[in-house]
Simulated assay, not measured.
Amino acid sequence: MFKYQVNEDLYLRMYTIDDAAPLYHLINESRDHLKEWLAWVDFNTDVEASKEWIKGTLNGVFETGGYPKTLAIIYQEELVGTVGFNEVNRTHRYASIGYWLSEKKQKKGIITDACRAIVTYGFQDIGLNRIEIRAASGNKKSRAIPERLGFQEEGILRQVELINDEFYDHIVYSMLAKDWLKKNG
């Protein structure tokens, strides 16, 4: 199974079907926190929905030619969130990443470290040239991640996402492989 060690306390790994119940409970305990910015939360209504989502992530490995698109964030041996490639364009070698973290595990640097790891993985192991992060303009916590990692703000996609019957703009951030290598060796 794919595992990407980030630091002593943190690693990323592929989801397994056995993660369905812990994933559902994690989402459920952070439901109000997550649904403010993530439209899919209302569709994850039980363990079976989590299981079906995990099956989809596992199928994504075959679609990409063998690398995982979606990874569980494991902090101190506990599932605490997800980071992954929402979209991968193999022809033009770019991807968009997304992430979320349990409300209880915020402010520990976990999501920043997880995103740094998946960006490095995308450039070094997959051979991507460009990675972008899109975040709702009002989601200051999510926007802080690409800013902290040195991504360049490119612009605004107007009213691109519908969450809780309201349209939100996205701020688009990007990083190129050559710039990442300069910053991170």
Rank of each mutant, 00 (worst) to 15 (best):
L26K: 05
K3M: 10
H92I: 02
S137Y: 05
L34Y: 06
H33S: 13
F85W: 11
N86I: 11
V61T: 04
A144S: 15
I126H: 08
L79N: 05
V83A: 01
E147H: 05
V119C: 09
L101Q: 05
L176T: 02
D179M: 00
E48K: 13
G122P: 01
L71D: 01
L26P: 10
D18L: 05
D125Q: 13
A117C: 07
T120N: 11
F43G: 09
S137D: 10
D46F: 09
Q159S: 15
E147D: 15
L34P: 03
N129W: 02
E103G: 09
L12G: 06
K182A: 09
M14P: 00
R31S: 09
A20F: 05
F85R: 12
T64Q: 14
D113Y: 07
A49Q: 15
G185H: 10
G60R: 12
D19T: 07
K104R: 13
I118W: 10
N129Y: 06
G122K: 03
E63S: 06
D19P: 14
G122N: 04
Q5R: 09
T120L: 06
R148M: 08
S96R: 13
Q76T: 04
S142N: 05
A39G: 04
M1E: 10
E87L: 15
T64P: 03
S96P: 00
H170S: 05
K183Y: 01
W53G: 03
K3D: 00
Y11S: 02
H25F: 11
F62S: 10
T64V: 01
F123H: 08
G109I: 06
R130A: 02
Q152H: 10
N139M: 02
L38K: 00
H170Y: 13
E147A: 12
L162V: 10
E29G: 00
F123L: 07
R148A: 13
T120P: 00
K55G: 01
N44F: 06
D9A: 14
R31K: 12
